[in-house]
Design a protein around this nucleic acid. Structure first.
Lengths: 205, 205
DNA sequence: GAAATTATTGACCAATTGGTCAGGGTCACG
DNA sequence: CGTGACCCTGACCAATTGGTCAATAATTTC
């Protein structure tokens, strides 16, 4: 039942596991792991607490499932760099993709931020294997462009960090961004223009 | 006793309140507010739980005290922009100051990040008053430089966001940064060089 | 449509946790 | 050196919370 690969899931299992994960995503994102209670998750999912624990062995398992699913989606765009494409446009496409993810999936961004902030207790091994591998591949592509003189030379890893931090900032620090801007602003729209300017100037040779 | 202004504090009060705040900073930073327990704080401070509650009425009060103190230190460098200085150097000085704060006070950075991530339940009013006021002042100075053609024109608020997000990233997402870089890197040293390049190119007219 | 399987829940438990309190120790100060 | 204010703690409490379980309801299967 907890094994997605072999055990065939009934319709009810499909539906309820999804309800739980959806509810839990919001609860974890806005309260952190320790701050989230199974009761809150159950309520958000529209189920009873024992019923939640019927579909997931523990709170930990819900959290872990969520993180695993999330990580795939989160890292996917990084694998889409095309060495044959126009370097600057490739980077800008990635920046936009990440920014739109922050805008459209802020709960996912916050869940991830929470986890990393706490020292990634459930992610350390994934971080050091999958993540590093994916980033390393992207770094090779980017460094290639720089070697060819098609992109200004900067340390590729930090270029990637800059994209992550600035785009995720608009999801994770949303309240702060809005408090500073005040009413009458569209943070994500403005951010998109700002980031395009920034990377065009920075990366042009 | 809880009022720092009028009531004179004994040596013991001074010392123990400081011990508690120091201990609590670490505990809150690495566990979040809900994840932190008074027992952990007491242990970190080397005091008994009831003794901690002798110096602070509640866990909330410790947290609030910490945030208030922190916010001052955190925002101070933003007020130091000198309209008469060299624009690019002024910005770079601020960037360096923030990066060094991330390096030297990562617990403070994480405490702050945790609070904002949870929607800033204890900071909303401060955020919308003090923070906005300070930022608005800095925005005026920066916009002035741009009007004089001494700095490339970008939206000043987002310039500030970019500095905050990229510098704090190295404290808040430390595990991720180190996982990606692997051994043999000094994240903060590299970041300093990267950020200098970035802002020089971006802000040069 | 009955048996077998799956789904659901109220009631409960043990552990944790924020906070209290009475009583005893310690320190400053006259 | 005595006394009042300050400091500290073991024992305790009520609320919360992760998780269990026996019993019941709903579905599927044959």
């Amino acid at each position: 039942m907890t094994n997605g690969k072999t055990a065939p899931m009934t319709r009810i299992q499909q539906k309820n596991r999804q309800l739980i994960l959806d509810g839990a995503l919001g609860v974890f994102a806005s309260n952190g792991f320790r701050g989230a209670t199974i009761d809150q998750i159950a309520k958000a999912a529209g189920l009873s607490k024992p019923n939640v624990l019927y579909y997931f062995r523990s709170k930990d398992e819900i959290h872990k499932t969520l993180l695993t699913r999330l990580l795939e989606m989160w890292l996917a765009p990084l694998s889409r760099f095309d060495p044959k494409g126009d370097p600057l446009e490739e980077v800008l496409t990635y920046v936009r993709a990440k920014l739109h993810m922050s805008r459209d999936y802020p709960r996912e961004s916050r869940l991830f931020a929470n986890e990393i902030l706490q020292g990634a207790p459930h992610l350390t091994e994934v971080l050091e294997e999958d993540l590093k591998t994916i980033v390393d591949r992207a770094v090779v592509v980017i460094a290639g462009w720089m070697d060819q003189g098609r992109l200004a030379r900067v340390q590729p890893q930090h270029l990637i960090f800059s994209i992550w931090s600035m785009t995720q900032h608009y999801a994770d620090f949303d309240v702060q961004v809005r408090a500073v801007l005040g009413p009458g602003h569209d943070p994500f729209d403005e951010a998109e223009k700002f980031l395009e300017q920034l990377y065009r100037k920075m990366l042009s040779v």
